[in-house]
Design a protein around this nucleic acid. Structure first.
Lengths: 309, 309
DNA sequence: ATAGATCCATACATGGGATGTATCGATGGA
DNA sequence: TCCATCGATACATCCCATGTATGGATCTAT
C-alpha cells in the first residue's frame, strides 16, 4: 500500500465518483479504477459499492476513511517537521542552566522562545557551570545558560544574556541599613554570607576578587549555593552578603540592598549563553536570536551605573 | 513521497546503517541509498549525516522520525480498520430505541457490546416505534430497539430481546394493595393511568386488548408516555395502572406491583430488535449475536409464569 | 420502449522508476 | 601501509503506474 493509493481512495470517497476523482487527481479514470481495485485486493475487503450513478463507501471504506486522511496528514507533517527542523523551527533543544537562571532569566527566555517556535521541544537540565561547559563541548547540550565570568573551553562561545553588578545585602535592622551606599571597607568587621566554592564557583571567585581589591578579608560564617538562599540567610540576620543587584527586586522587607561605592570597573558579573562555536544546531541559533532581541531585565544594575562588558 | 520511502527512512534511522537497513528491508544497499537520496531531495533537507562508520540522523531527520513512524502506524490502522469493519468489529452502528429501553435494556446491551467490540462507535437516537421502523426500512438506522408486538414492514425482521407480561401497579395505600394477585375485573371501577395512544401506541394497544378480554372498559384519568411516568402517577395516588412487570424491580415504597390473575395467553409484551432482513451490516449482525447470547433480565416476568413468544 | 448518456471495468501499450549487479571512493583500524 | 567497511555511482532490467481505446451496465428522456 502506498500513499498515492490512499490519496486516490480519499479522492474517490470525497467525490463519490471515479471519473470526477480522476479529474481532481489529474489522471485518467481507468488507472484510478485499477489502483483502487489493487488496494481493495491488498486489504482483502471492498471499499466501495459501485453503482451506475457513482460509487458509495462500504462500511469498511467508511471506517478506513478517517484513518487514511490522518495518515496523509501525518505524511505532510513529516515533510513539514523536517523542513522546519532544518530552519531551527522544530525539533529538540537540550538546554542546561545554572540555578541562578531559574530565578528570572530562564522563564523569560523559555516563554519568549516557545511562543515564537512552539514546535521546538525544550529539554532542560540543571547543573553547575563546569559541568555545563563540558556538556556543551561534547554535544550532550545544545546550549547552556551559565554564570560569567567563566573560562570557556575551546570550541565554546559565550553570548551575554544579562549583565549585572554586585551590591550589598543587609538585614533591615542592620545599623548601616539606612545608608544610601556603602564601601566594602566599611564592612570589614561584619559576618559575611558567602558562596560554596565548588558549587557556586563563579560567584565565589568574583566575590573573593572584589573583596581583595577592596582590601578586606571577609569573615564568612555561612555559605549558600543559590543566591536566594544567601539572601534568606541575610534576612535571618546572620550576616551581610554580596549579591547580584538583579536580585534586589524580588526580596522581602527583612532585607535591604545598597550599591557598592567605588566598585572596581572589572567586577562585572552576568548570565551568558554558552554554545558550540561550530556544530551549532539551527534551533540553537534561533534561540540565540531570541535572546539577542529580548530587552534586558531592568534591575538595580542600571541604577548603579552598569558598565558595558 | 511514498510509504515505502518512509519505511526505508525509519529502517535506516533505526539501523544507523544503509547496509543493515537494506538487509532488514530485503533489498540491496544501492537502491536504498538512491531512495533515501530522492526522499531528501523531495523534502529539500538532508535527513542523515553520512559517515564512514555508518549514518546518523540530522536534526531534521530526528524531528521527522516520530512523524514517519506515526504515519506508518496510521497506514496499518487503515488496513486494520477496514478489515475489522468488514467483520463488523469496527465502524459505526446507528441504533434507534424507544424510551422504555433506556430504563434497562439499552444500558445492558451497550455495555456488553462495547466491551466486546470497542472499535465500533455507537450512535443512538430516541424515537417512537413507528418512526424507528421507517428508519430501519430506509437505512437511516442499522438497528432499532422497540416495543413488541408491533407490525414490522416488509424487509424488516424482529429479534426478541426480552419478553414480559403486564402486571398491576397500585398505590401502596390502596385497599387492594395487600392482595397477592388481582383479576382485572376487580378493578373495573378504578381510575386508570393509561398510555398516550400516539406516542406509546404498542402499550396502549396491548393494554386496551387486555382490558377488552377481561371484559372491562377502564376509566382512564391520566395518560403517560414513559412507563416510569405512569408509575410515578400511580405513586402519587392518582389511580392504578397496567405496566410491564420488569418495571417492578425499580420502584418506590409508594407503589406495589401485583400479578394479574387469569392473564390471557396472547397478552405478552416485550422489547425486540428490528433489523433489515437483507442489507444488514456486519456490525449489526455482531450486535444481534451479543443480544442473543445475553442472559435475559430477571424481572417479575418469570415469577408470574412467563409464556414463550 | 428505445436511444443516448453516464459511469465503471477491461485490454493493451508505454514509459518511468524501483531494484539488482558491478564497481568506485572514502574512512578508520590493524 | 594495507585491508575492511560503508556509502555512492553507473548501468541494465523489470515491474507497475498510467494513458488510450473500448466494452458493458444502468439510468433517463423522449
Amino acid at each position: 500500500m502506498e500513499l498515492r493509493q490512499l490519496s486516490q481512495f480519499v479522492a474517490v470517497a470525497e467525490m463519490q465518483s471515479f471519473s470526477r476523482a480522476a479529474e481532481r487527481l489529474s489522471m485518467a479514470q481507468p488507472p484510478l479504477s485499477v489502483a483502487i481495485r489493487k488496494l481493495e485486493d491488498e486489504i482483502g475487503v471492498s471499499l466501495f459499492d459501485r453503482g451506475a450513478r457513482g460509487v458509495r463507501l462500504t462500511d469498511a471504506g467508511e471506517a478506513a476513511l478517517e484513518a487514511a486522511r490522518k495518515c496523509l496528514r501525518e505524511a505532510d507533517e513529516v515533510v513539514s517537521l523536517a523542513r522546519m527542523a532544518a530552519k531551527g523551527e522544530a525539533g529538540l533543544l537540550r538546554i542546561g542552566f545554572v540555578g541562578s537562571a531559574t530565578f528570572d532569566v530562564l522563564p523569560r527566555l523559555i516563554e519568549a522562545f516557545s511562543e515564537r517556535y512552539p514546535k521546538v521541544r525544550l529539554d532542560l537540565f540543571e547543573a553547575a557551570n563546569l559541568e555545563l561547559l563540558q556538556s556543551v563541548t561534547n554535544g550532550r547540550l545544545h546550549l547552556a545558560i551559565l554564570r560569567v565570568p567563566t573560562a570557556a573551553p575551546a570550541g565554546v562561545s559565550l553570548q551575554l544574556i544579562e549583565q549585572d553588578v554586585f551590591c550589598i545585602a543587609l538585614p533591615a535592622r542592620h545599623p548601616m541599613a539606612g545608608r544610601e551606599s556603602l564601601a566594602l571597607a566599611e564592612l570589614a568587621d561584619e559576618a559575611f554570607i558567602g558562596y560554596v566554592p565548588g558549587r557556586a564557583s563563579t560567584l565565589h571567585a568574583a566575590m573573593t576578587q572584589l573583596c581583595l581589591q577592596a582590601g578586606i578579608m571577609p569573615r564568612i560564617t555561612q555559605e549558600g549555593v543559590q543566591v536566594q538562599t544567601v539572601i534568606g540567610l541575610v534576612a535571618s540576620g546572620l550576616g551581610v552578603a554580596i549579591v547580584p543587584a538583579i536580585h534586589s527586586q524580588y526580596s522581602s522587607r527583612r532585607v535591604v540592598f545598597r550599591p557598592i561605592r567605588d566598585l572596581p570597573a572589572g567586577s562585572v558579573i552576568g548570565i551568558s549563553l554558552a554554545y558550540p562555536t561550530t556544530r551549532e544546531t539551527a534551533a540553537a541559533r534561533r534561540f540565540r536570536e531570541i535572546v539577542r532581541a529580548l530587552p534586558p531585565d531592568s534591575g538595580m544594575g542600571e541604577e548603579v551605573g552598569l558598565p558595558r562588558l
